[in-house]
Design a protein around this nucleic acid. Structure first.
Length: 532
RNA sequence: GGCCCCAUCGUCUAGUUAGGUCUAGGACAUCGGAUUUUCAUUCCGGUAACAGGGGUUCAAAUCCCCUUGGGGUCACCA
């Protein structure tokens, strides 16, 4: 039997990271088995603006390279792929169920049903539907329908049955139907409910494996019963653990971002994200873009390979060694049998580690392209096409080396792009290593003169000059190197000092040195005056 | 609360289906040390777990039962 899997997102305006993991497993299972992966849009709640709501979801799939064989844009033989356009199918299935007696019109007022439910709860009894409408004669029903009396349609649960499934990840799970209320499958306006539409569509699209998060496990008996009532064969089930918040067993949720910000395990990611996003003009404190959304990672400059690798390892492993997997390797190694049962937290640290690895695999040209677009977006360069700019950025990227974990990290090398007078200075370290020491300021002054006259402003000769300078002045490297770095880059640490100097060039180095020296003189004098 | 699911280092996990080779392996994080002018990288090393209690067995992380803990779900949402 051909493998056909589906992912059925609701158009919510963003792609949830946990949903993406579910989609990935579906995609992987289909690809692994040379099957078909279907995208079906669950838009039974009418959406006002479909482009806005669905766009980011399709965008996330495209970014990660998860292609779908049937669905929006590409179409397919089982369309339409929007549930809002499949009403006729649901209506027909509803008629069939009503005619066969598997479903019934329930005229009981919602308030009455609610009251029964509460009464049962109060008495600690299991609540099951009263089925009062089943007492009605055919004529009475006909009259009520003709009179337009509102009624929902419920599936008549066979109370003596049991539902037993053999789940690919959970094994045998069973439910006792005598404990189940009759589920509503269509609203009083005739529109289908999730459980019902899903079953009709899964059958029509011949879905072979329903791979979804564990939170849907409790929907399964209803869906099995619906399939039976409709005379369908049931698909195979695989309820994978949902993605939990870091360090917890709770489902990761968009509404809990504020709490995640305080979570130490999320620390590094938020720091990284905030610093990159603020450069890009996003309001970092706003929740419009958060680590719960796939788009967040793209904006911060993660690679699809890094995200995919992190996602596939949440709740699944190949063996006791394999951590790094390319998309191709996952495709060939993935199996439902090795999906773990317990919920697993997204580990931001590990995500960053995977990301660093995949970044290190990129060619210089690929890194350059990524960085160029980030620099452009932040306004640090004017164009990405200019050959001179490209050559310069290429050198910065090369110099940055493995400090570049995400493309957004290129902003940490902003000293190579800002005007001298706009250079931001690490005030605390500047004070400590430059302003405070009279001797260092003097040495820096002398060094400036030597730098002005060095014949070749290149890393090698610069290194020799600094080395000679320290012996000549009888000082240690530590007395002058950090100070010099602070003056010309504004930072206490960074890439190779001499290559940095070379890249910046004599002019900028001298100007920044002068600028720093006068700043140090000012604060040095002020500091001396107020010292007690 | 009912129903259902889950339980190995801080985290992600291997080991559980076929009990012994597990004084429990790997990765990330962390802590040391080496390399490096700084940072990062790289390399070496360390700390660190079978939730608890009963069984079954020559032998249990693995099988059974109970307890505890965690979570999901209980709509005319998806």
């Amino acid at each position: 039997m051909p493998v056909r899997t589906r992912f059925a997102p609701s158009p919510t305006g963003y792609m949830h990271i946990g949903g993406m993991r579910t989609a990935l497993f579906n995609w992987l299972w289909a690809r692994r088995n040379k099957g078909t992966f279907i995208l079906r849009i669950d838009d039974t709640d009418q959406q006002r603006n479909m482009d806005e709501a669905l766009g980011p979801i399709l965008q996330a799939f495209r970014w990660l390279g998860l292609d779908w064989d049937e669905g929006p844009d590409v179409g397919g033989p089982n369309g339409p792929y929007f549930q809002s356009q499949r009403r006729a199918l649901y209506d027909a299935a509803l008629e069939k169920l009503l005619a066969s007696g598997h479903a019934y019109r329930d005229f009981e007022p919602p308030s009455e049903t609610q009251a029964q439910r509460e009464a049962a709860e109060k008495d600690k009894r299991v609540y099951v539907s009263s089925r009062s409408s089943l007492q009605l004669t055919a004529a009475e029903i006909h009259m009520k329908v003709a009179a337009g009396e509102p009624a929902v349609i419920r599936l008549k649960v066979p109370r003596t049955d049991k539902v037993i499934i053999n789940d690919h990840v959970r094994g045998t799970v069973e439910w006792d139907c005598s404990l189940m209320p009759d589920p509503v499958i269509a609203r009083s306006d005739g529109s289908p409910l999730y459980n019902f539409a899903t079953v009709v569509d899964d059958a029509a699209m011949e879905i072979s494996h329903v791979i979804r998060a564990e939170e849907h496990l409790s929907n399964t008996p209803i869906q099995v019963l619906l399939h039976r009532a409709l005379g369908n064969s049931t698909p195979e089930w695989a309820h994978i653990p949902y993605v939990a918040a870091p360090g917890s067993k709770e489902k990761i949720s968009k509404r809990k971002i504020a709490a995640y910000r305080k979570n130490p395990q999320f620390q590094k990611l938020f720091e990284l994200g905030d610093s990159v996003l603020s450069r890009l003009g996003f309001d970092a404190s706003s929740d419009s873009l958060s680590p719960v959304m796939v788009a967040y990672y793209q904006q911060v400059g993660f690679l699809p390979a890094g995200i995919l690798n992190a996602l596939v390892r949440i709740g699944w492993s190949y063996d006791d060694q394999t951590e790094i997997l390319s998309r191709e390797e996952m495709q060939q190694k993935f199996s439902l049998e090795r999906v773990i049962r317990s919920p697993a937290g997204l580990d931001p640290d590990k995500l960053i580690s995977f990301q660093s690895h995949w970044m290190s695999q990129l060619s210089a040209a690929e890194k350059l392209d990524g960085c160029l677009s980030f620099l452009k977006a932040a306004g640090l360069i004017k164009t990405v096409d200019d050959p001179e700019t490209r050559a310069y950025v290429a050198q910065v990227v090369d110099l940055t080396g493995d400090r570049l974990r995400v493309f957004g990290d290129i902003f940490q090398a902003d000293e190579f792009f800002v005007a001298d007078e706009l250079l931001s200075i690490d005030a605390k370290n500047f004070e400590k290593r430059v302003s405070k020491s009279e001797a260092t300021r003097q040495n820096l002054g002398l060094l400036k003169i030597q730098l002005q006259s060095i014949p070749e402003f290149l890393a090698g000769p610069l290194h020799d000059l600094l080395q000679a300078f320290t012996t000549e002045r009888g000082i240690k490297a530590g007395d002058i190197f950090p100070a010099l770095r602070l003056c010309v880059t504004g930072k206490a640490q960074g890439a190779d000092l001499f290559r940095s100097l070379e890249l910046l060039g004599r002019e900028r180095v001298i100007r920044r040195l002068e600028q720093a020296l006068s700043r140090a003189a000012e604060s040095g004098n002020a500091g001396a005056g107020t010292q007690t």
